[in-house]
């Protein structure tokens, strides 16, 4: 564990806490893409199939449980909680995420480290995570106005990706046999998707104004 990975995990956790807090405090999920949240729940469930077969560390297992539970809690809130559910704007959240799931699964069947059940699902989760933010970014683009907490949620998610890239560079330099091409290439693609958002986030931060994305 290096400082970059820890910082990445912490900003990832922070992003989820910010989102849960926003939904809990305002009893509203306006501006939040349910499709992105469902994709993340699938990502964690598919990736952490090794929770009961490979023990890495208490930290590792604990975080896996936290990520699975929190992503399911968010989806549950958006689908079942009577007040939160009413604030969900279906008309804005129109991204066809089933295509992403199908495409990522096909890619995982072709590109994986080993052709085993766990490894194919692991690769699938990596590919799906890389594109899972797309429905959220499209929703923000469509609604134009981004409230502070939703902006911070996406900001922390992007920061998490940035730290993971630093972590891979660090590991590549310090661990002689560290090569994890599937995760690294997908990770770079994922981080690149945030570039546009970050640009506008920093401009609004610099000008001390509300975050607005161009139509």
């Amino acid at each position: 564990m290096n400082i970059f990975r820890l910082a990445g995990d912490m900003t990832h956790l922070l992003s989820i806490i910010v989102l849960l807090l926003k939904i809990y405090a305002t009893k509203s999920c306006s501006g939040v893409s349910r499709k992105t949240q469902e994709l993340y729940a699938i990502v964690f469930l598919a990736r952490y199939l090794d929770l009961f077969t490979d023990f890495i560390s208490v930290y590792n297992s604990f975080m896996k449980v936290v990520f699975i539970a929190s992503s399911l809690a968010i989806v549950w809130c958006m689908r079942v909680h009577p007040m939160v559910r009413r604030s969900y704007d279906k008309e804005l959240d129109t991204f066809r995420h089933y295509f992403l799931i199908a495409a990522c699964f096909l890619l995982a069947l072709v590109l994986h480290e080993k052709f085993t059940f766990q490894e194919v699902f692991w690769a699938f989760s990596i590919y799906l995570e890389a594109v899972a933010i797309l429905p959220q970014l499209v929703l923000l683009q469509r609604s134009g106005n981004v409230d502070n907490l939703t902006g911070q949620y996406v900001f922390f998610l992007g920061a998490y990706r940035g730290f993971y890239i630093l972590n891979w560079i660090y590991r590549y330099l310090t661990e002689p046999r560290f090569t994890r091409w599937i995760a690294c290439v997908s990770g770079v693609v994922q981080t690149a998707l945030y570039a546009d958002f970050f640009y506008y986030y920093f401009i609004s931060w610099k000008n001390n104004s509300k975050l607005k994305l161009p139509a």
């Binding site: 090794d50 077969t53 590792n60 661990e175 046999r177």
Partner: peptide
């Protein structure tokens, strides 16, 4: 370290 079984990253 990298020979450890399983994926150590989240």
């Amino acid at each position: 370290l990298s020979a450890k079984k399983g994926k150590d990253e989240l």
